[in-house]
Simulated scan of single mutants.
Amino acid sequence: MSETDTIDRVITCERIHNFRDYGGYSTSHGRLRSGWLYRSAQHFDANAADLARVSGLGLAVVIDLRGRSERREAPCPRPDGFDAEIVSIEDETVTQAPHIEAARAEMTAEEARASMANAYHTMPFRPVLMQLYTRYFEKLAEVDGPSLIHCLAGKDRTGIAVALLHHVVNVHPDDMMADYLLTNVTGNIEARVRAGGRHVKARMGEMSDDALRALMSVEPMFLQNGFKAMAEQYGSIDGYLSEGLGVTPERRERIIARLTV
């Protein structure tokens, strides 16, 4: 892991889950900025204290990876005076959040993990999600200020985006994976699983705790499957970034210049 302590990454909130800083890692270009790159789950349940915490981050842009129906069902409140640009697309990035799509009635924990791993084979190629990933990298190359990227649970669509950014700036693969896996230990895990479980159970009915925890967690093979699929379809992860998401060498250079110190 990077020299940056894991605890320093956590943005402590009562009702915004999986909220953390994904900067601070060493790269081949220097160090990725701290206090500049944030990721989280959705903010629908945020209370006043949480919103004050968000306000204090000085965000310039928020990239909301949720689809139209997800945003309609769970609109995110914003702090008073909040003037960050909100980037979203009026379409569906996925039919439902990946962990909900992967759920099946009466599935075991092993089946849940296999279903999530399988979802990563196709998730990076959802056309609307690719449009949002493109916008994410555009904003990172243009905006002089902190950004936040989130989806529903802040672990799959967001996890892929963050890992791709780490790849772009040459964060060590071990640090990239360690950051991805922080989802499993960051914040109030029990509250996060309960929050995610509400969405799953609303669509699938009752489910065992073990299966639900598997759906709400991440595993190395999930991200590995996503990267493998990118390489198979585009020749490499860099091919996916350049051909699929428009991360040209020039854009990569601008991102590196803005985000590393």
Rank of each mutant, 00 (worst) to 15 (best):
D50W: 13
G81S: 06
R251Y: 05
L223M: 11
A112M: 04
V10I: 14
L241Y: 06
L140M: 14
F82T: 03
S69G: 04
D21S: 13
V143G: 07
M230P: 02
H167E: 09
T186L: 13
I256W: 00
V185I: 10
K155I: 02
H29F: 13
N118S: 13
E232S: 12
L37H: 00
V171L: 08
E3M: 07
E253P: 03
G81H: 04
K139V: 01
P77H: 02
S34R: 15
I237N: 01
I86F: 06
G197V: 11
G24Q: 07
I237K: 02
D5P: 13
V171E: 02
A117M: 00
R254K: 12
E253M: 10
R194A: 15
E101R: 08
H121D: 00
Y234V: 01
V218D: 01
E70I: 03
L51Y: 02
V128F: 06
Y234S: 11
I11Q: 09
Q42G: 08
F82D: 06
R126F: 11
I63E: 06
H167N: 09
A49N: 12
W36C: 09
I11F: 07
R72T: 13
E90P: 12
L165S: 10
E85K: 15
R251I: 11
E85A: 15
E243T: 08
Y133R: 12
